[in-house]
Write a protein that binds this DNA or RNA. Structure first.
Lengths: 230, 230
DNA sequence: CGGTAAACGAGAGCGGTGCTCTCGGAATTC
DNA sequence: GAATTCCGAGAGCACCGCTCTCGTTTACCG
């Protein structure tokens, strides 16, 4: 059974080559540098032949996006297995963004114009890290529950969170589907840390803070995560 | 003196038309929808004629980017004149991003491939909001200095901030050039709020949290800003 | 074993892009 | 009035995604 004909093996090989070349092109020149014609040239084949393996540029994009999400989530999981902390998660993401800036932009930057990622293909790998963060936050708030209320000077936090309950509904629904059930305070905390981490990495990668960083990125990330009390 | 010939007036008019059409194209179809050929068609002119007014697509991009930075900074200034608070700043940015999602992506999203914004043209309008945020943070920390240390449970914040002094150097230099001099704690606080606000807006605009928000964006932003203690 | 069907590569072609160059006419300057 | 600058038209180059047809090779199946 499951014998592979030469043709099948060749097809798998070609598909792997196409995604590998595609990944390299994104790494080198960003998503705009991804060209099916150029891939064809590199394969030593006429341009139309590539369409035997990939329906369209968008389909290739979906493959590369799912790849990237999986890669960074794997990196985070591996690092967390070593040491479970929000800082580890943040620094691992930052490090991955440094090694693959264009792939980072592919998944966390501006969506590609005219392209809509098929949710069923990309949602699962795309949410792995955020789910890991939520569980980290849930753990730490259980540990030091008393320290939680100290952040707000007015002591109005609990009522604030209550007001937010309806606001957080969409996200809670998403977590529910995965069998996760967290407090509103945990969800809000998770979102806050998440957007700060992504925002900082984007700012660094996209050069919005000007030049001059580079060797102190990690310290800055640690500072921000520390300031967030995580 | 300063007489304007018909030709000069016509040129100014045409330049204004080009940037207006360009802005509309970005609004409609994102930066990838910006096409000099399409602008030429809309002007009822052959494509090469546009190059009499704009050296290249990149030059037009620079104009549009500076425009967008100026617009959003004006909106924030106006709102802050009404009510000075970090929340006002954040909600105004969020609101502007909602009205001009593609222009938002133009300035705070992935940098355009192969395009480098000339710093002398875009830095000044691009940093106005962050400077306003820094002054807001400075004001509020002077008001309630005691509440500042409560965020960290270990009480290690002051030494943490000291460690960061070198890390924050690049940003402090930027502020120095503008004649501003803030504490490290103020700078770190400013960065933290900044990246969280930008990160949240990007997440909402770029659809990274999935659908289902829309009418509760403002509440979510208020929640995050509140959680940050601002 | 031989016929049929599927997979595949080549090539031409369509419409789109940014950008360059040349040419002739019109407006401005001297 | 002449010289200079400005400006639109048009052709052309190299790229892109994508489609269609055509001949060949491979796989399957009675």
């Amino acid at each position: 059974m499951t014998e592979t004909t030469p043709r099948q093996r060749a097809r798998i090989e070609t598909e792997a080559q196409i995604t590998a070349i595609g990944n390299r092109m994104v790494d080198d020149d960003g998503v705009d540098g991804l060209s099916l014609r150029a891939i064809a040239r590199e394969l030593g084949v006429v341009s139309s032949a590539v369409y035997r393996y990939v329906k369209s540029r968008d389909e290739l994009l979906t493959i590369l996006i799912r790849d990237a999400f999986t890669q960074i989530a794997d990196a985070v999981d591996e690092a967390l297995a070593e040491h479970r902390s929000v800082e580890t998660l943040a620094l691992t993401m930052l490090d991955w963004s440094r090694s693959h800036p264009n792939r980072w932009a592919l998944i966390y930057g501006t969506p590609i114009a005219g392209y809509e990622a098929p949710r069923e293909e990309t949602v699962v790998p795309g949410t792995r890290i955020m789910i890991a963060l939520a569980s980290l936050v849930a753990e730490s708030t259980t540990d030091t529950e008393a320290a939680n209320g100290a952040g707000s000077a007015q002591g109005a936090q609990s009522s604030e969170v209550q007001e937010l309950s309806a606001t957080l509904e969409p996200l809670r629904r998403g977590l529910d589907e995965l069998g996760l059930d967290y407090d509103d305070s945990v969800i809000l905390e998770t979102i806050t840390i998440w957007v700060a981490v992504i925002g900082l990495i984007n700012g660094l990668r996209f050069g919005q803070f000007g030049p001059g960083f580079g060797d102190v990125e990690d310290d800055l990330m640690s500072g921000v995560v520390g300031r967030l009390g995580a």
